[in-house]
Design a protein around this nucleic acid. Structure first.
Lengths: 301, 301
DNA sequence: CATCATCATAGATAATGTTTAATGAAAAGT
DNA sequence: ACTTTTCATTAAACATTATCTATGATGATG
Protein backbone atom coordinates (compact mmCIF):
# COMPACT_ATOMS: atom_id res chain seq x y z
CA UNK A 1 0.00 0.00 0.00
CA UNK A 2 1.16 3.52 0.70
CA UNK A 3 1.87 6.41 -1.56
CA UNK A 4 3.17 5.45 -4.97
CA UNK A 5 5.22 8.57 -5.54
CA UNK A 6 7.03 8.20 -2.26
CA UNK A 7 7.57 4.53 -2.82
CA UNK A 8 9.10 5.02 -6.24
CA UNK A 9 11.18 7.91 -5.00
CA UNK A 10 12.38 5.88 -2.08
CA UNK A 11 13.52 3.05 -4.30
CA UNK A 12 15.35 5.39 -6.64
CA UNK A 13 16.99 7.10 -3.69
CA UNK A 14 18.10 3.80 -2.27
CA UNK A 15 19.52 2.45 -5.48
CA UNK A 16 20.57 5.84 -6.80
CA UNK A 17 19.39 4.83 -10.22
CA UNK A 18 16.18 5.31 -12.13
CA UNK A 19 16.85 2.26 -14.23
CA UNK A 20 17.51 -0.09 -11.34
CA UNK A 21 14.54 1.26 -9.45
CA UNK A 22 12.39 0.55 -12.47
CA UNK A 23 13.57 -3.05 -12.57
CA UNK A 24 13.05 -3.51 -8.87
CA UNK A 25 9.55 -2.11 -9.02
CA UNK A 26 8.69 -4.06 -12.16
CA UNK A 27 7.95 -1.03 -14.21
CA UNK A 28 9.58 0.87 -17.02
CA UNK A 29 11.98 3.65 -16.35
CA UNK A 30 9.94 6.49 -17.85
CA UNK A 31 7.26 5.63 -15.33
CA UNK A 32 9.82 6.10 -12.60
CA UNK A 33 10.80 9.47 -14.04
CA UNK A 34 7.14 10.40 -14.06
CA UNK A 35 6.57 9.57 -10.42
CA UNK A 36 9.72 11.24 -9.23
CA UNK A 37 8.77 14.32 -11.13
CA UNK A 38 5.33 14.32 -9.55
CA UNK A 39 7.02 14.45 -6.20
CA UNK A 40 9.45 17.12 -7.32
CA UNK A 41 6.59 19.20 -8.62
CA UNK A 42 4.81 18.76 -5.36
CA UNK A 43 7.76 19.94 -3.32
CA UNK A 44 8.58 22.49 -5.95
CA UNK A 45 12.21 21.47 -5.85
CA UNK A 46 14.60 18.92 -7.30
CA UNK A 47 15.14 15.84 -5.22
CA UNK A 48 17.92 14.37 -7.34
CA UNK A 49 20.96 15.99 -8.77
CA UNK A 50 21.30 14.81 -12.36
CA UNK A 51 24.22 16.91 -13.45
CA UNK A 52 26.58 13.97 -13.65
CA UNK A 53 25.85 10.60 -15.08
CA UNK A 54 25.29 9.28 -11.62
CA UNK A 55 22.39 10.80 -9.81
CA UNK A 56 22.60 12.03 -6.25
CA UNK A 57 20.15 13.10 -3.66
CA UNK A 58 19.85 16.83 -3.18
CA UNK A 59 19.63 18.16 0.34
CA UNK A 60 15.86 18.28 0.06
CA UNK A 61 15.88 14.80 -1.46
CA UNK A 62 17.83 13.48 1.44
CA UNK A 63 15.34 14.88 3.86
CA UNK A 64 12.44 13.37 1.97
CA UNK A 65 14.31 10.10 1.95
CA UNK A 66 14.69 10.13 5.71
CA UNK A 67 11.07 10.98 6.27
CA UNK A 68 9.83 8.45 3.79
CA UNK A 69 11.80 5.86 5.68
CA UNK A 70 9.98 6.71 8.85
CA UNK A 71 6.67 6.87 7.05
CA UNK A 72 7.11 3.43 5.54
CA UNK A 73 8.10 2.07 8.88
CA UNK A 74 4.84 3.35 10.29
CA UNK A 75 2.87 1.92 7.41
CA UNK A 76 4.54 -1.37 8.02
CA UNK A 77 3.90 -1.24 11.72
CA UNK A 78 0.26 -0.42 11.09
CA UNK A 79 -0.04 -3.30 8.70
CA UNK A 80 1.44 -5.79 11.13
CA UNK A 81 -0.50 -4.44 14.01
CA UNK A 82 -3.81 -4.77 12.22
CA UNK A 83 -3.11 -8.19 10.83
CA UNK A 84 -1.96 -9.44 14.18
CA UNK A 85 -5.18 -8.18 15.68
CA UNK A 86 -7.35 -9.87 13.11
CA UNK A 87 -5.19 -12.95 12.93
CA UNK A 88 -4.89 -12.48 9.23
CA UNK A 89 -2.03 -14.14 7.43
CA UNK A 90 -2.03 -12.80 3.94
CA UNK A 91 0.02 -10.62 1.73
CA UNK A 92 2.90 -10.82 -0.65
CA UNK A 93 6.25 -12.22 0.32
CA UNK A 94 9.23 -11.78 -1.94
CA UNK A 95 11.88 -14.39 -1.40
CA UNK A 96 15.23 -14.83 -3.04
CA UNK A 97 17.29 -17.99 -3.09
CA UNK A 98 20.38 -19.40 -4.72
CA UNK A 99 19.78 -21.80 -7.56
CA UNK A 100 20.01 -25.14 -5.82
CA UNK A 101 17.85 -24.05 -2.95
CA UNK A 102 15.30 -22.44 -5.20
CA UNK A 103 15.09 -25.54 -7.32
CA UNK A 104 15.20 -28.37 -4.82
CA UNK A 105 14.42 -27.14 -1.36
CA UNK A 106 11.96 -24.34 -1.60
CA UNK A 107 9.31 -25.77 -3.90
CA UNK A 108 8.33 -28.37 -1.32
CA UNK A 109 8.57 -26.00 1.62
CA UNK A 110 6.71 -23.19 -0.07
CA UNK A 111 4.15 -25.57 -1.42
CA UNK A 112 3.33 -26.78 2.07
CA UNK A 113 3.32 -23.27 3.37
CA UNK A 114 1.00 -22.09 0.66
CA UNK A 115 -1.41 -24.93 1.24
CA UNK A 116 -1.59 -23.91 4.88
CA UNK A 117 -1.90 -20.18 4.17
CA UNK A 118 -3.57 -19.95 0.82
CA UNK A 119 -3.87 -16.19 0.88
CA UNK A 120 -0.16 -15.62 0.85
CA UNK A 121 1.41 -14.79 -2.48
CA UNK A 122 5.01 -15.74 -2.84
CA UNK A 123 7.41 -14.28 -5.36
CA UNK A 124 10.64 -16.16 -5.75
CA UNK A 125 13.76 -14.64 -7.24
CA UNK A 126 16.81 -16.68 -8.12
CA UNK A 127 20.37 -15.41 -8.01
CA UNK A 128 23.72 -16.36 -6.53
CA UNK A 129 24.39 -15.96 -2.81
CA UNK A 130 25.97 -12.53 -3.01
CA UNK A 131 23.17 -11.24 -5.18
CA UNK A 132 20.58 -12.53 -2.76
CA UNK A 133 22.24 -10.91 0.22
CA UNK A 134 22.51 -7.55 -1.48
CA UNK A 135 18.87 -7.77 -2.53
CA UNK A 136 17.93 -8.28 1.09
CA UNK A 137 20.09 -5.34 2.05
CA UNK A 138 18.38 -3.02 -0.37
CA UNK A 139 14.92 -4.29 0.50
CA UNK A 140 14.31 -5.69 -2.93
CA UNK A 141 13.40 -9.00 -1.37
CA UNK A 142 11.99 -9.65 2.08
CA UNK A 143 13.84 -12.84 2.77
CA UNK A 144 16.89 -14.55 1.33
CA UNK A 145 17.83 -18.20 1.59
CA UNK A 146 21.43 -19.05 0.80
CA UNK A 147 23.90 -21.86 1.37
CA UNK A 148 27.09 -20.12 2.20
CA UNK A 149 27.58 -18.43 5.57
CA UNK A 150 26.61 -14.79 5.62
CA UNK A 151 28.68 -12.20 7.40
CA UNK A 152 26.76 -8.99 7.37
CA UNK A 153 26.17 -7.29 10.66
CA UNK A 154 23.37 -5.20 9.23
CA UNK A 155 21.27 -8.26 8.60
CA UNK A 156 19.74 -10.99 10.69
CA UNK A 157 20.99 -14.43 9.80
CA UNK A 158 19.39 -17.59 11.00
CA UNK A 159 20.83 -20.98 10.27
CA UNK A 160 18.64 -23.94 9.56
CA UNK A 161 19.80 -27.46 8.99
CA UNK A 162 17.69 -28.61 6.14
CA UNK A 163 20.26 -30.09 3.90
CA UNK A 164 22.31 -33.20 4.26
CA UNK A 165 24.80 -34.40 1.71
CA UNK A 166 24.68 -38.12 1.04
CA UNK A 167 26.45 -40.59 -1.15
CA UNK A 168 24.37 -41.77 -4.06
CA UNK A 169 24.64 -44.77 -6.26
CA UNK A 170 22.47 -47.10 -8.29
CA UNK A 171 20.49 -49.64 -6.27
CA UNK A 172 22.71 -52.50 -7.42
CA UNK A 173 25.90 -50.83 -6.32
CA UNK A 174 28.08 -52.38 -3.60
CA UNK A 175 27.49 -49.55 -1.16
CA UNK A 176 23.74 -49.43 -1.79
CA UNK A 177 22.68 -51.38 1.27
CA UNK A 178 25.13 -49.88 3.73
CA UNK A 179 23.57 -48.01 6.61
CA UNK A 180 26.28 -45.42 6.32
CA UNK A 181 29.49 -45.10 4.48
CA UNK A 182 32.89 -43.72 5.40
CA UNK A 183 34.82 -41.62 2.98
CA UNK A 184 37.62 -44.12 2.49
CA UNK A 185 35.08 -46.69 1.32
CA UNK A 186 34.18 -44.38 -1.55
CA UNK A 187 37.68 -43.73 -2.77
CA UNK A 188 37.87 -46.79 -4.94
CA UNK A 189 34.79 -45.96 -7.03
CA UNK A 190 34.66 -43.58 -9.94
CA UNK A 191 33.37 -40.31 -8.52
CA UNK A 192 31.15 -37.89 -10.37
CA UNK A 193 30.79 -34.39 -9.10
CA UNK A 194 30.06 -30.75 -9.77
CA UNK A 195 32.65 -28.44 -11.24
CA UNK A 196 35.22 -26.63 -9.16
CA UNK A 197 33.64 -23.47 -7.75
CA UNK A 198 30.17 -24.82 -7.19
CA UNK A 199 28.82 -24.70 -3.65
CA UNK A 200 28.40 -28.45 -3.42
CA UNK A 201 31.93 -29.13 -4.64
CA UNK A 202 33.32 -26.67 -2.11
CA UNK A 203 31.61 -28.46 0.72
CA UNK A 204 32.83 -31.84 -0.40
CA UNK A 205 36.36 -30.55 -0.80
CA UNK A 206 36.53 -29.19 2.70
CA UNK A 207 34.90 -32.35 4.08
CA UNK A 208 37.67 -34.39 2.51
CA UNK A 209 40.28 -31.99 3.77
CA UNK A 210 38.85 -31.97 7.29
CA UNK A 211 39.00 -35.75 7.50
CA UNK A 212 42.61 -35.34 6.57
CA UNK A 213 43.32 -38.23 4.29
CA UNK A 214 46.95 -38.94 3.90
CA UNK A 215 47.30 -37.78 0.35
CA UNK A 216 44.59 -39.88 -1.24
CA UNK A 217 41.68 -37.92 -2.66
CA UNK A 218 38.49 -38.89 -4.40
CA UNK A 219 38.73 -40.72 -7.66
CA UNK A 220 37.05 -38.06 -9.75
CA UNK A 221 36.05 -39.43 -13.10
CA UNK A 222 33.69 -36.71 -14.26
CA UNK A 223 32.89 -33.08 -13.55
CA UNK A 224 29.41 -31.94 -14.50
CA UNK A 225 27.74 -28.56 -14.50
CA UNK A 226 24.42 -29.21 -12.78
CA UNK A 227 22.86 -31.42 -10.15
CA UNK A 228 20.62 -32.94 -12.78
CA UNK A 229 23.48 -34.08 -14.94
CA UNK A 230 25.30 -35.53 -11.94
CA UNK A 231 22.24 -37.54 -11.01
CA UNK A 232 21.85 -38.63 -14.59
CA UNK A 233 25.42 -39.90 -14.72
CA UNK A 234 25.07 -41.82 -11.48
CA UNK A 235 21.76 -43.32 -12.60
CA UNK A 236 23.49 -44.43 -15.75
CA UNK A 237 25.90 -46.36 -13.59
CA UNK A 238 28.90 -44.25 -14.41
CA UNK A 239 29.93 -43.89 -10.79
CA UNK A 240 28.93 -42.61 -7.41
CA UNK A 241 28.58 -39.10 -6.09
CA UNK A 242 27.86 -37.01 -3.05
CA UNK A 243 24.90 -34.76 -3.40
CA UNK A 244 22.32 -32.80 -1.49
CA UNK A 245 19.62 -35.15 -0.31
CA UNK A 246 16.97 -32.62 -1.21
CA UNK A 247 17.84 -32.87 -4.86
CA UNK A 248 17.16 -36.57 -5.19
CA UNK A 249 13.76 -37.03 -3.62
CA UNK A 250 12.14 -38.08 -6.85
CA UNK A 251 14.89 -40.54 -7.74
CA UNK A 252 14.65 -42.14 -4.30
CA UNK A 253 10.95 -42.60 -4.70
CA UNK A 254 11.41 -44.02 -8.18
CA UNK A 255 14.14 -46.28 -6.91
CA UNK A 256 16.59 -45.23 -9.57
CA UNK A 257 19.04 -44.04 -6.95
CA UNK A 258 19.97 -45.02 -3.43
CA UNK A 259 21.19 -42.59 -0.81
CA UNK A 260 23.68 -43.61 1.84
CA UNK A 261 24.41 -41.22 4.70
CA UNK A 262 28.04 -40.40 5.19
CA UNK A 263 29.88 -41.15 8.37
CA UNK A 264 30.48 -38.66 9.86
CA UNK A 265 27.35 -36.96 8.67
CA UNK A 266 27.90 -34.14 6.23
CA UNK A 267 25.45 -31.35 6.78
CA UNK A 268 25.15 -28.05 5.09
CA UNK A 269 23.11 -25.48 6.95
CA UNK A 270 21.09 -22.93 5.06
CA UNK A 271 20.95 -19.38 6.12
CA UNK A 272 17.83 -17.30 6.18
CA UNK A 273 18.75 -13.64 5.93
CA UNK A 274 16.51 -10.67 6.40
CA UNK A 275 16.56 -7.08 7.63
CA UNK A 276 16.68 -6.78 11.37
CA UNK A 277 14.11 -4.05 11.66
CA UNK A 278 11.67 -4.42 14.48
CA UNK A 279 8.60 -4.58 12.32
CA UNK A 280 8.72 -7.25 9.71
CA UNK A 281 5.80 -8.52 7.75
CA UNK A 282 3.72 -10.88 9.79
CA UNK A 283 3.72 -13.33 6.90
CA UNK A 284 7.47 -13.52 7.09
CA UNK A 285 7.59 -14.40 10.76
CA UNK A 286 5.09 -17.06 9.99
CA UNK A 287 7.18 -18.47 7.17
CA UNK A 288 10.33 -18.47 9.29
CA UNK A 289 8.59 -20.37 12.04
CA UNK A 290 7.16 -22.71 9.47
CA UNK A 291 10.63 -23.32 8.08
CA UNK A 292 12.03 -24.05 11.53
CA UNK A 293 9.44 -26.73 12.16
CA UNK A 294 9.94 -28.04 8.66
CA UNK A 295 13.66 -28.44 9.34
CA UNK A 296 13.05 -30.33 12.54
CA UNK A 297 10.69 -32.72 10.88
CA UNK A 298 12.75 -33.40 7.81
CA UNK A 299 15.96 -33.54 9.77
CA UNK A 300 17.03 -36.76 11.39
CA UNK A 301 16.94 -39.23 8.55
CA UNK B 1 -0.22 14.42 -0.99
CA UNK B 2 -0.21 11.08 0.79
CA UNK B 3 -2.21 7.97 0.31
CA UNK B 4 -5.71 8.56 -0.95
CA UNK B 5 -7.24 5.52 0.67
CA UNK B 6 -5.89 6.40 4.08
CA UNK B 7 -6.92 9.99 3.68
CA UNK B 8 -10.47 9.13 2.77
CA UNK B 9 -10.67 6.53 5.51
CA UNK B 10 -9.33 9.00 8.02
CA UNK B 11 -11.95 11.56 7.14
CA UNK B 12 -14.74 9.03 7.38
CA UNK B 13 -13.42 7.83 10.70
CA UNK B 14 -13.26 11.36 12.02
CA UNK B 15 -16.75 12.32 10.93
CA UNK B 16 -18.16 8.83 11.35
CA UNK B 17 -20.10 9.31 8.16
CA UNK B 18 -19.46 8.40 4.54
CA UNK B 19 -21.72 11.16 3.34
CA UNK B 20 -20.12 13.92 5.38
CA UNK B 21 -16.67 12.71 4.49
CA UNK B 22 -17.65 12.89 0.85
CA UNK B 23 -18.74 16.50 1.22
CA UNK B 24 -15.62 17.43 3.09
CA UNK B 25 -13.39 15.85 0.50
CA UNK B 26 -15.37 17.30 -2.40
CA UNK B 27 -16.25 13.98 -3.81
CA UNK B 28 -19.31 11.80 -4.06
CA UNK B 29 -20.26 9.25 -1.52
CA UNK B 30 -19.81 6.19 -3.74
CA UNK B 31 -16.22 7.25 -4.29
CA UNK B 32 -15.75 7.26 -0.54
CA UNK B 33 -17.26 3.80 -0.28
CA UNK B 34 -14.88 2.68 -3.00
CA UNK B 35 -11.77 3.94 -1.25
CA UNK B 36 -12.75 2.60 2.12
CA UNK B 37 -13.42 -0.75 0.56
CA UNK B 38 -10.01 -0.73 -1.07
CA UNK B 39 -8.51 -0.31 2.36
CA UNK B 40 -10.73 -2.97 3.86
CA UNK B 41 -9.77 -5.37 1.11
CA UNK B 42 -6.15 -4.60 1.73
CA UNK B 43 -6.39 -5.35 5.42
CA UNK B 44 -8.75 -8.18 4.72
CA UNK B 45 -11.05 -6.95 7.45
CA UNK B 46 -13.86 -4.50 8.05
CA UNK B 47 -12.82 -1.13 9.39
CA UNK B 48 -16.32 0.17 10.00
CA UNK B 49 -19.26 -1.45 11.64
CA UNK B 50 -22.30 -0.76 9.46
CA UNK B 51 -24.83 -2.90 11.23
CA UNK B 52 -26.71 0.07 12.60
CA UNK B 53 -27.59 3.20 10.73
CA UNK B 54 -24.70 4.98 12.33
CA UNK B 55 -21.33 3.61 11.45
CA UNK B 56 -18.65 2.88 14.00
CA UNK B 57 -15.00 2.04 13.88
CA UNK B 58 -14.19 -1.59 14.42
CA UNK B 59 -11.26 -2.45 16.62
CA UNK B 60 -9.07 -2.79 13.57
CA UNK B 61 -10.46 0.43 12.20
CA UNK B 62 -9.58 2.24 15.35
CA UNK B 63 -6.03 1.05 15.12
CA UNK B 64 -5.74 2.12 11.51
CA UNK B 65 -7.17 5.46 12.53
CA UNK B 66 -4.52 5.96 15.16
CA UNK B 67 -1.73 4.99 12.84
CA UNK B 68 -3.01 7.12 10.02
CA UNK B 69 -2.97 10.04 12.36
CA UNK B 70 0.69 9.50 13.04
CA UNK B 71 1.41 8.90 9.39
CA UNK B 72 -0.26 12.14 8.35
CA UNK B 73 1.63 13.99 11.00
CA UNK B 74 4.84 12.69 9.53
CA UNK B 75 3.78 13.61 6.02
CA UNK B 76 3.00 17.06 7.24
CA UNK B 77 6.25 17.37 9.07
CA UNK B 78 8.14 16.24 6.00
CA UNK B 79 6.33 18.75 3.89
CA UNK B 80 7.12 21.64 6.17
CA UNK B 81 10.64 20.55 6.71
CA UNK B 82 11.37 20.40 3.00
CA UNK B 83 9.66 23.67 2.20
CA UNK B 84 11.43 25.40 5.00
CA UNK B 85 14.71 24.14 3.67
CA UNK B 86 14.03 25.32 0.15
CA UNK B 87 12.33 28.51 1.29
CA UNK B 88 9.35 27.57 -0.78
CA UNK B 89 6.04 29.18 -0.02
CA UNK B 90 3.48 27.37 -2.05
CA UNK B 91 0.59 25.08 -1.58
CA UNK B 92 -3.10 25.16 -0.96
CA UNK B 93 -4.60 26.94 2.00
CA UNK B 94 -8.22 26.47 2.90
CA UNK B 95 -9.65 29.35 4.85
CA UNK B 96 -13.08 29.85 6.28
CA UNK B 97 -14.62 33.14 7.33
CA UNK B 98 -17.91 34.58 8.43
CA UNK B 99 -19.81 36.52 5.80
CA UNK B 100 -18.78 40.09 6.55
CA UNK B 101 -15.15 39.20 6.89
CA UNK B 102 -15.17 37.09 3.79
CA UNK B 103 -16.79 39.83 1.79
CA UNK B 104 -15.09 42.97 3.01
CA UNK B 105 -11.89 42.17 4.82
CA UNK B 106 -10.34 39.15 3.23
CA UNK B 107 -10.47 40.03 -0.44
CA UNK B 108 -7.98 42.88 0.05
CA UNK B 109 -5.80 40.95 2.46
CA UNK B 110 -5.75 37.80 0.41
CA UNK B 111 -5.23 39.76 -2.76
CA UNK B 112 -2.10 41.36 -1.35
CA UNK B 113 -0.95 38.04 0.00
CA UNK B 114 -1.46 36.33 -3.30
CA UNK B 115 0.41 39.03 -5.19
CA UNK B 116 3.35 38.48 -2.88
CA UNK B 117 3.18 34.68 -2.98
CA UNK B 118 1.71 33.87 -6.33
CA UNK B 119 2.15 30.14 -5.94
CA UNK B 120 -0.24 29.87 -3.05
CA UNK B 121 -3.74 28.71 -3.85
CA UNK B 122 -6.39 29.90 -1.49
CA UNK B 123 -9.78 28.32 -1.04
CA UNK B 124 -12.26 30.39 0.87
CA UNK B 125 -15.34 28.96 2.54
CA UNK B 126 -18.08 31.12 3.98
CA UNK B 127 -20.22 30.17 6.94
CA UNK B 128 -21.29 31.59 10.29
CA UNK B 129 -18.86 31.76 13.19
CA UNK B 130 -19.88 28.48 14.78
CA UNK B 131 -19.67 26.68 11.48
CA UNK B 132 -16.20 28.06 10.86
CA UNK B 133 -14.93 27.00 14.25
CA UNK B 134 -16.21 23.48 13.90
CA UNK B 135 -14.69 23.24 10.45
CA UNK B 136 -11.34 24.15 11.93
CA UNK B 137 -11.85 21.56 14.60
CA UNK B 138 -12.48 18.78 12.14
CA UNK B 139 -9.65 19.85 9.89
CA UNK B 140 -11.94 20.75 7.05
CA UNK B 141 -10.32 24.14 6.83
CA UNK B 142 -6.83 25.13 7.85
CA UNK B 143 -7.66 28.54 9.22
CA UNK B 144 -10.80 30.31 10.35
CA UNK B 145 -11.40 34.02 10.65
CA UNK B 146 -14.36 35.06 12.75
CA UNK B 147 -15.67 38.12 14.54
CA UNK B 148 -16.99 36.80 17.77
CA UNK B 149 -14.66 35.64 20.53
CA UNK B 150 -13.83 31.94 20.40
CA UNK B 151 -13.67 29.82 23.49
CA UNK B 152 -12.28 26.47 22.51
CA UNK B 153 -9.31 25.19 24.39
CA UNK B 154 -8.48 22.68 21.69
CA UNK B 155 -7.77 25.44 19.22
CA UNK B 156 -5.32 28.30 18.97
CA UNK B 157 -6.98 31.68 18.82
CA UNK B 158 -5.19 34.85 17.86
CA UNK B 159 -6.86 38.21 17.96
CA UNK B 160 -6.13 40.84 15.40
CA UNK B 161 -7.50 44.36 15.36
CA UNK B 162 -8.33 44.91 11.78
CA UNK B 163 -11.77 46.30 12.04
CA UNK B 164 -12.96 49.65 13.32
CA UNK B 165 -16.57 50.73 13.40
CA UNK B 166 -17.12 54.31 12.28
CA UNK B 167 -20.04 56.66 11.86
CA UNK B 168 -20.96 57.19 8.23
CA UNK B 169 -22.94 59.96 6.56
CA UNK B 170 -23.17 61.77 3.25
CA UNK B 171 -20.42 64.35 2.64
CA UNK B 172 -22.85 67.23 3.12
CA UNK B 173 -23.99 66.02 6.52
CA UNK B 174 -23.41 68.13 9.61
CA UNK B 175 -21.05 65.60 11.18
CA UNK B 176 -19.12 65.01 7.97
CA UNK B 177 -16.18 67.27 8.78
CA UNK B 178 -15.84 66.34 12.44
CA UNK B 179 -12.57 64.70 13.37
CA UNK B 180 -14.42 62.40 15.63
CA UNK B 181 -17.90 62.12 16.96
CA UNK B 182 -19.30 61.24 20.34
CA UNK B 183 -22.31 59.03 20.60
CA UNK B 184 -24.61 61.71 22.02
CA UNK B 185 -23.95 63.84 18.96
CA UNK B 186 -25.47 61.11 16.83
CA UNK B 187 -28.64 60.65 18.81
CA UNK B 188 -30.54 63.43 17.09
CA UNK B 189 -30.11 62.01 13.58
CA UNK B 190 -32.16 59.26 12.02
CA UNK B 191 -30.13 56.11 12.48
CA UNK B 192 -30.02 53.24 10.00
CA UNK B 193 -28.68 49.94 11.08
CA UNK B 194 -28.58 46.20 10.70
CA UNK B 195 -31.27 43.99 12.09
CA UNK B 196 -31.28 42.69 15.64
CA UNK B 197 -29.07 39.60 15.82
CA UNK B 198 -26.45 40.63 13.34
CA UNK B 199 -22.88 40.86 14.57
CA UNK B 200 -22.57 44.54 13.82
CA UNK B 201 -25.80 45.40 15.62
CA UNK B 202 -24.67 43.45 18.66
CA UNK B 203 -21.46 45.41 18.86
CA UNK B 204 -23.24 48.74 18.53
CA UNK B 205 -25.76 47.75 21.18
CA UNK B 206 -23.15 46.88 23.72
CA UNK B 207 -21.20 50.02 22.87
CA UNK B 208 -24.24 52.10 23.63
CA UNK B 209 -24.86 50.14 26.79
CA UNK B 210 -21.26 50.46 27.94
CA UNK B 211 -21.34 54.24 27.59
CA UNK B 212 -24.38 54.08 29.80
CA UNK B 213 -26.63 56.75 28.42
CA UNK B 214 -29.33 57.77 30.83
CA UNK B 215 -32.20 56.18 29.05
CA UNK B 216 -31.78 57.74 25.63
CA UNK B 217 -30.91 55.36 22.83
CA UNK B 218 -30.21 55.74 19.19
CA UNK B 219 -32.93 57.16 17.01
CA UNK B 220 -33.34 54.09 14.84
CA UNK B 221 -35.29 54.89 11.72
CA UNK B 222 -34.53 51.83 9.65
CA UNK B 223 -33.35 48.26 10.05
CA UNK B 224 -31.82 46.66 7.01
CA UNK B 225 -30.62 43.15 6.25
CA UNK B 226 -27.18 43.68 4.76
CA UNK B 227 -24.24 46.05 4.89
CA UNK B 228 -24.85 46.98 1.28
CA UNK B 229 -28.40 48.12 1.89
CA UNK B 230 -27.34 50.13 4.95
CA UNK B 231 -24.73 51.91 2.89
CA UNK B 232 -27.24 52.52 0.15
CA UNK B 233 -29.70 54.08 2.56
CA UNK B 234 -27.08 56.37 4.05
CA UNK B 235 -25.86 57.36 0.60
CA UNK B 236 -29.42 58.24 -0.28
CA UNK B 237 -29.41 60.69 2.62
CA UNK B 238 -31.89 58.77 4.71
CA UNK B 239 -29.77 59.00 7.82
CA UNK B 240 -26.48 58.05 9.44
CA UNK B 241 -25.12 54.73 10.54
CA UNK B 242 -22.27 52.99 12.27
CA UNK B 243 -20.55 50.41 10.19
CA UNK B 244 -17.33 48.48 9.76
CA UNK B 245 -14.77 50.68 8.08
CA UNK B 246 -13.64 47.83 5.90
CA UNK B 247 -17.03 47.66 4.22
CA UNK B 248 -16.99 51.21 2.92
CA UNK B 249 -13.59 51.53 1.24
CA UNK B 250 -15.08 51.99 -2.20
CA UNK B 251 -17.61 54.58 -1.07
CA UNK B 252 -14.89 56.58 0.70
CA UNK B 253 -12.84 56.64 -2.46
CA UNK B 254 -15.83 57.64 -4.52
CA UNK B 255 -16.72 60.29 -2.03
CA UNK B 256 -20.29 59.12 -1.70
CA UNK B 257 -19.82 58.54 2.02
CA UNK B 258 -17.78 60.08 4.78
CA UNK B 259 -16.46 58.15 7.75
CA UNK B 260 -16.08 59.74 11.14
CA UNK B 261 -14.28 57.82 13.89
CA UNK B 262 -16.23 57.40 17.07
CA UNK B 263 -15.02 58.78 20.36
CA UNK B 264 -14.17 56.58 22.14
CA UNK B 265 -12.98 54.42 19.30
CA UNK B 266 -15.09 51.34 18.63
CA UNK B 267 -12.98 48.40 17.58
CA UNK B 268 -13.95 44.89 16.81
CA UNK B 269 -11.09 42.39 16.89
CA UNK B 270 -11.09 39.45 14.56
CA UNK B 271 -10.00 36.07 15.69
CA UNK B 272 -7.85 33.74 13.69
CA UNK B 273 -8.44 30.18 14.79
CA UNK B 274 -6.50 27.11 13.86
CA UNK B 275 -5.40 23.75 15.21
CA UNK B 276 -2.60 23.95 17.70
CA UNK B 277 -0.59 21.07 16.36
CA UNK B 278 3.12 21.61 16.22
CA UNK B 279 3.43 21.22 12.51
CA UNK B 280 1.24 23.49 10.54
CA UNK B 281 1.55 24.26 6.90
CA UNK B 282 4.33 26.70 6.29
CA UNK B 283 2.00 28.74 4.07
CA UNK B 284 -0.29 29.27 7.00
CA UNK B 285 2.37 30.64 9.28
CA UNK B 286 3.29 32.96 6.50
CA UNK B 287 -0.28 34.13 6.08
CA UNK B 288 -0.71 34.70 9.80
CA UNK B 289 2.42 36.79 9.95
CA UNK B 290 1.28 38.65 6.87
CA UNK B 291 -2.06 39.36 8.52
CA UNK B 292 -0.37 40.66 11.65
CA UNK B 293 1.66 43.16 9.67
CA UNK B 294 -1.39 44.04 7.64
CA UNK B 295 -3.30 44.85 10.81
CA UNK B 296 -0.55 47.09 12.10
CA UNK B 297 -0.40 49.03 8.85
CA UNK B 298 -4.10 49.46 8.37
CA UNK B 299 -4.70 50.14 12.03
CA UNK B 300 -4.34 53.64 13.37
CA UNK B 301 -6.42 55.74 11.07
C1' DC C 1 -46.26 1.40 7.08
C1' DA C 2 -44.46 5.20 4.63
C1' DT C 3 -40.58 8.38 4.61
C1' DC C 4 -36.08 9.91 5.35
C1' DA C 5 -31.34 9.21 5.75
C1' DT C 6 -27.43 6.51 4.75
C1' DC C 7 -24.49 3.19 2.64
C1' DA C 8 -23.83 -0.22 -1.40
C1' DT C 9 -23.73 -1.47 -6.36
C1' DA C 10 -23.31 -1.00 -11.48
C1' DG C 11 -22.03 1.09 -15.60
C1' DA C 12 -20.19 5.22 -17.84
C1' DT C 13 -16.70 8.74 -17.67
C1' DA C 14 -12.65 11.16 -16.10
C1' DA C 15 -8.14 11.26 -14.16
C1' DT C 16 -3.72 8.99 -13.43
C1' DG C 17 -0.20 5.90 -14.29
C1' DT C 18 2.33 3.04 -17.53
C1' DT C 19 4.32 1.58 -21.83
C1' DT C 20 6.44 2.08 -26.35
C1' DA C 21 9.30 4.66 -29.19
C1' DA C 22 12.14 8.47 -30.13
C1' DT C 23 15.55 12.06 -28.34
C1' DG C 24 19.32 14.04 -25.75
C1' DA C 25 23.38 14.20 -23.02
C1' DA C 26 27.24 12.53 -20.63
C1' DA C 27 30.82 8.91 -20.00
C1' DA C 28 33.65 5.12 -21.80
C1' DG C 29 35.90 2.75 -25.44
C1' DT C 30 38.39 3.03 -29.94
C1' DA D 1 38.14 13.22 -32.03
C1' DC D 2 34.55 9.91 -32.98
C1' DT D 3 31.68 6.23 -32.11
C1' DT D 4 29.29 3.42 -28.83
C1' DT D 5 27.01 2.78 -24.62
C1' DT D 6 24.45 4.04 -20.71
C1' DC D 7 20.98 6.56 -18.55
C1' DA D 8 17.41 9.97 -18.11
C1' DT D 9 13.70 12.70 -20.50
C1' DT D 10 9.77 13.59 -23.61
C1' DA D 11 5.53 12.63 -26.17
C1' DA D 12 1.74 9.96 -27.51
C1' DA D 13 -0.94 5.70 -27.20
C1' DC D 14 -2.73 2.68 -23.94
C1' DA D 15 -4.14 0.63 -19.34
C1' DT D 16 -5.54 1.10 -14.90
C1' DT D 17 -7.80 3.28 -11.20
C1' DA D 18 -10.79 6.66 -9.26
C1' DT D 19 -14.95 9.20 -9.63
C1' DC D 20 -19.64 10.31 -10.95
C1' DT D 21 -24.55 9.39 -12.11
C1' DA D 22 -28.30 6.70 -11.28
C1' DT D 23 -30.41 3.35 -8.57
C1' DG D 24 -31.21 -0.14 -4.98
C1' DA D 25 -31.27 -1.83 -0.21
C1' DT D 26 -31.67 -1.29 4.78
C1' DG D 27 -32.43 0.64 9.13
C1' DA D 28 -34.34 4.57 11.80
C1' DT D 29 -38.33 7.73 12.57
C1' DG D 30 -42.74 9.41 12.95
Amino acid sequence: MSDRRLQVFHTVAKLLSFTKAAETLHMTQPAVTFQVRQLEDFFNTRLFDRTHNRINLTEAGYRVFEYSDRIFELYNEMDNSVREMTGDISGVLTIGASTTIAEYMLPALLGDFKSKYSEVDIHLKVSNSDGIVSMVESNIIDLGVVESPVNNKNLMVEKCKMDQLVAIATPDHVIANHDSVRLNELLSFPFICREEGSGTRDVINSYVKDLDFDGYGLNISMELGSPESVKGAVEAGMGISIISKATIQKELRLGTLVAVPLDPILERPFSFVHQKQKFRQRVMDELLEFARVYCEENQPN
